[in-house]
Structure formats: structure tokens, C-alpha cells
Simulated assay, not measured.
Amino acid sequence: MTDLSAFPIAQRWPALHPERLQLYSLPTPNGMKVSIMLEEIGLPYEPHLVDITKNESWTPEFLSLNPNGKIPAIIDPNGPGGQPLALFESGAILIYLAEKTGKLLSADPATRYQTIQWLMFQMGGVGPMFGQLGFFHKFAGAAFEDKRPRDRYAAESKRLLGVLETRLAERTWIMGDDFSIADVSMLGWVKTLRDFYGAADLVGWDDLKAVPAWLGRGFARPAVLKGSGIPARPA
């Protein structure tokens, strides 16, 4: 039987199925990347809810897995060489899972790097900018009288959506005919920007055509729809 006792996080979130990949997460735009990926590739996993509203990601047990204190993070009991592997950062996890299973990342070198390029576009641009817009539009920043921070992030988010709109103008998915980790990384962020942050008007959503169509196709995939709600949020 797989032994995860060397990982302090397993003491706070015990594994009922230690032989499966362990996911520590919450279905935020970053968290759902990994649960969607796991559903898409069909790799058995056990999800553990890390309630960031209760600062559970800053507990010693979670910090032992991710010293940056952010979800998601994983432990793969069947990592390289058959040894357990702990990993954080959603983009790194997507690449790892794709290479582990040979799914959602092309084996062709040029296409592989182009896919990773769009994943980095999400990691370095879409995620940070959309997240800041959400803060200044929906959360504590909404009370700021000075709207310049919100407007700055709205303008940059609109620009990034324009880049995505151009990319998807004649493509089904970001990489063409094949659904990939680039799509997995962005679907949750784009949906959150529109629906949860309520920022559609700020970013000119109604002027877009390709991006809304792509979002609809993405969330019509059973694995995307299921993965976007795992682990279930606290009641």
C-alpha cells in the first residue's frame, strides 16, 4: 500500500486512496485547471478541499507542500522512477500531467512549445490581469474612489481578450483542431471574468465572437463541466 506519511499535508488531509494522485485545491480559476485536466485525461485522483476563505493554504501542513501558500498542489504517488512527487503551480502541474499521460500536449516538438507558449500567455497575462480586475471591480477594491486601478486592469484584460479573439477567429481550440492544456488553462479564467467577476461590460464582451463561442464549446465538454466543480465548495 502506498505510504504518504512522509508528507505532513497527509496528516491534515488524510488520503482514503493513497495509491491515487492527491489533489489539494478549490475550484477557483487556477484550481479548476488541474481538476479539469484530471477529468480530461482520466487519471484516478482523490480531491481534498483546501478552504482558502479560512486561510487553510497558509497552514504549516499546506506550506510544507507549497511554500507559496497557493492552491492547487498535488502529490503523485507514482511519480518519476516510481517515487512520490509533490508539485505546485498550476501550469507546471498541467505540463507534468500531460507528459505523464501523453494527452493534451502534442509530441511534435514545434507544436509542443507553441502550446506551452499559450499556457505561459495565460500564466503571465490572463490570470494576473483578470484576477486584479476582479479585485478592483468585485471585491475590496470596488470601494476605492479612484477608479484608475480598475480601469487599467480592465483595459489590459480587454486587450488580452482581443489577442485570444484573434487566435480563435478560425480555430476550434487554441491550438487548432486539438483541445490542449492551453484551453484547460484559460477556460475557467475567461468564464470567471464574465460570470463571477461580472466584468463583461468593462472588457467589451459583446464585441467578441470567437471567444464566447470557444467558451461555450469548452464548457460543453463533460470533463470541463465536471472538473470545474471539484472539489465541491463548502456549503
Rank of each mutant, 00 (worst) to 15 (best):
residue 105 L to H: 02
residue 101 T to G: 01
residue 106 S to V: 04
residue 134 G to C: 07
residue 188 G to L: 07
residue 155 A to N: 08
residue 109 P to G: 11
residue 88 F to W: 11
residue 67 P to Q: 02
residue 140 A to R: 11
residue 110 A to W: 12
residue 145 E to I: 13
residue 85 L to Q: 02
residue 191 K to G: 13
residue 119 L to E: 00
residue 145 E to A: 15
residue 90 S to A: 10
residue 151 D to R: 12
residue 92 A to T: 10
residue 71 I to F: 02
residue 175 M to H: 08
residue 186 M to T: 03
residue 65 L to R: 03
residue 95 I to W: 15
residue 83 Q to F: 13
residue 158 K to F: 12
residue 71 I to K: 01
residue 83 Q to C: 11
residue 144 F to M: 12
residue 170 E to N: 15
residue 82 G to E: 05
residue 154 A to I: 01
residue 158 K to S: 15
residue 130 F to L: 08
residue 188 G to C: 09
residue 155 A to S: 10
residue 98 A to T: 07
residue 150 R to I: 13
residue 92 A to I: 08
residue 65 L to C: 04
residue 173 W to A: 05
residue 151 D to C: 10
residue 193 L to H: 09
residue 165 E to Q: 05
residue 160 L to E: 00
residue 78 N to R: 15
residue 178 D to V: 13
residue 104 L to G: 03
residue 154 A to G: 00
residue 186 M to F: 04
residue 117 Q to V: 14
residue 120 M to A: 14
residue 117 Q to N: 14
residue 113 Y to R: 13
residue 120 M to D: 11
residue 122 Q to R: 09
residue 132 Q to H: 06
residue 123 M to A: 11
residue 66 N to G: 03
residue 119 L to Q: 04
residue 95 I to S: 12
residue 177 D to G: 06
residue 91 G to H: 05
residue 153 Y to I: 05
residue 140 A to C: 07
residue 172 T to G: 11
residue 184 V to W: 05
residue 175 M to D: 11
residue 105 L to M: 01
residue 80 P to H: 08
residue 129 M to F: 13
residue 195 D to R: 12
